[in-house]
């Protein structure tokens, strides 16, 4: 199966390791992966900060870039939710690009959805001998309704010990520009999340979204906790042979 990777601007710029992991994982599962180089950003930051016109422009750009693919995989619950939930409202029916949105949006899948719902694989053959806790992230949970998909995938990873994160469903406090505009509340939420992570005794905090991990991970690192944060793709890509 030929799939296009929409890596997201944050991952492309700051977390290339996640992109490499997604490529390696999808290839291992028999997919032919393409990274359309014209991709940039889904437009979520602009929309959610109050700049819908830029959001619309980026939405149209996205749909042009990915128009020719039968499946688009996004390793970010938040950006996938932006595309699936917001694009149809943002690019108003009848306006320029609306038809393209209608065609492309249903083919966009968040990574764990793609693995379970399209490829129908639960055991991706991964090996990761560590104690891991999982933060579901708000847009994966309440936007995309990913449910237990990520946990099911993690549950089949050999060697992995999954520990429940207390208060898992509560927001970590990232919230895009919220982290800057309401820094005090954002930091307080992040500190509470970090405390819950530490309480699990996990070595690794995992999520399906690097933006949230950047915030929680930045908090954990500032507190010199030694807990690593990892995108779920990086855990699922790890094998006994490849480490």
């Amino acid at each position: 199966m030929r799939v296009a990777l929409f890596l997201t601007c944050v991952n492309d710029t700051l977390f290339p390791g996640t992109g490499k992991a997604v490529v390696s994982l999808l290839r291992r599962l028999g997919c032919e992966v393409d990274f359309p180089a014209a991709q940039t950003c889904c437009g979520q930051m602009h929309l959610n900060t109050g700049y819908p016109q830029e959001g619309v422009r980026l939405a149209r750009h996205f749909t042009e870039v990915f128009a020719g693919y039968e499946a688009v995989v996004v390793p970010s619950g938040s950006c996938a939710a932006m595309i699936r939930e917001q694009y149809p409202k943002l690019v108003k029916p009848g306006s320029k690009g609306a038809a393209a949105v209608g065609r492309v949006v249903p083919r966009v899948h968040e990574l764990t959805e793609f693995l379970l719902d399209v490829l129908k694989v639960e055991d991706v053959g991964a090996y990761f001998p560590h104690r891991v806790t999982y933060h579901p992230t708000c847009h994966s949970l309440r936007g995309l309704h990913l449910g237990d998909r990520p946990v099911r995938l993690l549950g089949r990873v050999r060697g992995l010990e999954l520990v429940q994160l207390p208060g898992a469903e509560e927001c970590c406090g990232f919230g895009g520009t919220f982290a800057m505009k309401n820094a005090a509340v954002s930091a307080a939420m992040g500190a509470d999340k970090a405390r819950n992570v530490l309480g699990t005794g996990a070595e690794v905090l995992c999520a399906a979204d690097n933006s949230c991990l950047m915030h929680i991970g930045g908090t954990l690192a500032r507190q010199k906790t030694g807990v690593r944060v990892m995108h779920i793709a990086e855990i699922l890509a790890a094998t006994e042979a490849g480490g």
Binding site: P16, K20, M180, A187, A191, M214
Partner: peptide, 22 residues
Amino acid sequence: LSAWTDTRDLPDIPEEPFRDWW
């Protein structure tokens, strides 16, 4: 920008973006 770094470390900027590796 200190609103971020007052309480959180920044992620390390990678040697190259994903698109260059690709």
